[in-house]
Simulated scan of single mutants.
Amino acid sequence: MDTEQDFLFFNPRIATKYNPFYEGEYLVIQSYPREHKLMVEHRSFDYKKAKSHCELENLAHDYTSFSLRIFHDDKLWEVNYEGQPQSISKQQNWRVAQEYLEAHYATHTDAEVVVCQCSYPYFSSLTSHISNSSQPITSWQSLTCLLESKGQDIQTCPNCNASLVRVDESEDDDFDFDVMMNYADQ
């Protein structure tokens, strides 16, 4: 038996969110805060309507910002003042592998999908290993979690080259400030 949810896809506003993007289509996307999936607010083939919608969204939101992109050559591009592709966007429609999304939402794991400043999602997990001096060390390990390249160990973002290394916060608790002050006095 059909339910009300089954008929929602007759509503173009809802259905178009699940359609693939088309060449030359303008997308108004949420550019801040960034999520691990692309947040598309509006889609149109009319540059002026898309630009106007983007400006209205930015006026209406205090803690969220939106940007206009065009879908060209299977990527998102920034547009120039005429609505033509200008430069490739740092923010793309990343596809995270399902097992990493499941681990991200699991409550019993020290791991999560983290979003780089450029919007690239990666998987960060707490790992332990033994140092050369036989001491246990806890650190954050960064892995790619995209469908195409999942599981590769990374230190810098493949998209913007930013450092992804996170220092364990507990190491700060062991820092001896007295030793540092004595060293500085010498």
Results as ranks from 00 to 15, higher is better:
143 L>Q: 15
67 S>R: 11
148 E>R: 07
106 A>W: 03
78 E>Y: 10
109 T>C: 11
131 S>R: 06
98 Q>F: 11
112 E>D: 15
82 E>C: 10
146 L>V: 03
123 F>D: 06
127 T>E: 13
95 R>G: 01
71 F>H: 05
103 A>T: 12
108 H>F: 07
74 D>Q: 09
93 N>L: 14
103 A>H: 13
74 D>F: 00
69 R>V: 09
62 D>Y: 10
130 I>V: 10
106 A>G: 03
88 I>D: 05
132 N>T: 09
97 A>F: 06
84 Q>C: 11
96 V>I: 13
94 W>K: 11
79 V>P: 08
107 T>C: 11
119 S>G: 04
148 E>C: 05
142 S>F: 03
98 Q>A: 14
93 N>Q: 03
85 P>A: 04
87 S>I: 11
69 R>G: 09
127 T>D: 08
152 Q>P: 01
149 S>V: 05
67 S>V: 07
133 S>H: 12
87 S>V: 12
93 N>Y: 00
83 G>L: 06
117 Q>M: 13
105 Y>G: 02
114 V>T: 13
154 I>Y: 10
146 L>R: 10
125 S>P: 00
113 V>Q: 05
67 S>A: 15
75 K>I: 01
118 C>V: 04
96 V>F: 04
140 W>L: 04
143 L>E: 15
100 Y>H: 03
129 H>F: 10
84 Q>P: 07
